[in-house]
Design a binder for these strands. Sequence first.
RNA 1: GGCCCUGUGGCGCAACUGAAUAGCGCACUGGAUUUCGGCUCCAGCGGUUACAGGUUUGAAUCCUGUCAGGGUCACCA
Length: 637
Amino acid sequence: MEALIKQALLDHSQEIFEMDISEKMIQFQKTRKDVEGDLTLVVFPFGKVLKCSPVDAGEKIGAFLVEKIDALASYSVINGFLNFVISDQYWLGRLSDMDSQEKFGFQEANSKPTVMVEYSSPNTNKPLHLGHLRNIFLGYSVAEILKANGHKMVKTQIINDRGIHICKSMLAWERFSPVNDKGERETPENTGIKGDKLVGKYYVLFDKHFNTEANKIIQGWENADFSGYSEEISAEFERLNSSKAGKDEKAIAGLNEKIKDLAKNQTTILLDAKEMLILWEAKDPQVYLLWTTMNGWVYKGFEKTYDMMGVDFDTLYYESNTFLIGKDLVEDGLSSGVFFKKDDGSVWIDLTDDGLDEKLVLRSDGTAVYMTQDVGTAVDRFKDYPDLDGIIYTVGNEQDYHFRVLFLILQKLGYAWAKNCYHLSYGMVELRNSAGEVGKMKSREGTVVDADDLMDEVVGAARLMTQARGHIDGMSSEERDELFYKIGMGGLKYYLLKVDPRKGMAFNPEESIELNGNTGPFIQYAHARIKSLLAKGGELHNLRDVESISAEEKEILKHLNCFPEVIREAGEGHSPALLANYAFELVKLYNSFYQSVTVLKEEDATLRNMRLVLSSNVAKVIDLSLGLLGIKAPERM
RNA sequence: GGCCCUGUGGCGCAACUGAAUAGCGCACUGGAUUUCGGCUCCAGCGGUUACAGGUUUGAAUCCUGUCAGGGUCACCA
């Protein structure tokens, strides 16, 4: 309808205004609730150009359009706003139209360029936690939304499977794992512990021994025992230690932290881990075997977690493969002058002209850093997918700077596609306890929320609450489990996705399992209720001979009619939150309608059928929008 | 300190490609309904959109400054 009006105005601008008008002047908005009308044209811009009052301009335009366009029933002008009433028949036509489309609002699949969405991208040394949940649900949802917008999609992740942190777990396992009577160290098989959890356990254990040893060293230093340490180290310690005098608490804590780092670097356990990394890089068979074995455990564990989350990937990239590509690219860039080498052999890029700093891309010992690998991965991906248009990186906002640099480097290396790379940056998830205090998750303080535990918890909560309400008679226990899963996960996903991604959020366990208000289960319930209605309502017929619709019905139709536009906006803005809020709004409108009219008991068969068709399309759009959030809409609950 | 992000009723959020009296949920108060699935609906209470200027016919939205919170500025990832 907007397009129709816009065209009419442009085509007849001479007739109405006696001058040409620009498209930009034509601005629509939803009509306010307390004003009669279905669509509003803002007429301030016209008043300005026509040098008359906005009201006069509105009258002129309104009279012309109502005459010209059949579907416009009437108009009114209030202040600078021209409100149109659109005919009931127009809305009924829209209903027929959307009813005929199974995937109403979706663009034709694969009709747009290929896009890659990267999300999750874990380290292989510890299990996934709450922070990953926001990342994964967000990335998955954005990928689904872009698919709905017609893009060909490749879902991927970069698995951070190499580096010192992996060696720490490996070393701790080798050194500290108890040995059973068969002479085996702990494995997922012989302990029953999920693979990623087992490896994570040893990562924590490494840290514990690491700290103990470092503290012992500091104790020695404090007693002036520097035997075995170089003069530089003792001098550095003395410098740090003596500068504590007279400082405030915060400064002292900072200095202590520095002393601790100094000591940590002297621990034998870290030196051993570093040695292991060198062996790994040299592909030492024993270390390599240990590495593949332990990573294998982790992948199996992750697989289970992803399965529970209901997400998938098309292609996986491993840092252990791509960091070498990155190193080659740095060599190339060095000869082409994009990078430069410092005296110590380290390689840098100078981004001061772009308002950034110098950034390291290769260490002085020739080993790769994170940036090196990311450059390699990006180039590798475009090689693998020649029709790839761009990559979307779902990564937390603490890496905003990193991605600015990465995209700049890719641009300077001459890759035209660099401008199509986008950092889907999201805010941190912090924890809110029952007292309402917000705090960061810290593994050392045991305040990290494990992803598996959390999912089990919300599904368990859904079980309790749904059993208490009871609409599950006659369901098998498998069906019930499936239902509790859908409700629990639906609530959790909705909770994490309804907020604008770039904003930080505080996770409140109680709120995440709420069933009322702006929640996933509230929307799921409306869907189930409609499905029940439809099951009892019998066969649906084509709409015809419906004379008029009620205000509630019209409000729903107007909202349904926006769905395609919302999908488009959610894709453009990379924001699942738009769809979440859209679905919630739809449900509220429907509940209001449901309260005010009867459907099944309506005696007028035409009207009854129209309401059923309307309900059916509401259910469909709920199902589609929840689907784009990765949430299932149960038939019963 | 430089750069980036955020700041909306008690709490959680929406509107942030400028437009009418800033919407919604939770909580609280009152009411409807005992139903086609009440995990429902309606109403009330509650905000000079952190603060101060500026641009504009019009600012939560854009600009400048201040304040507060977070992030980042590693030969970590």
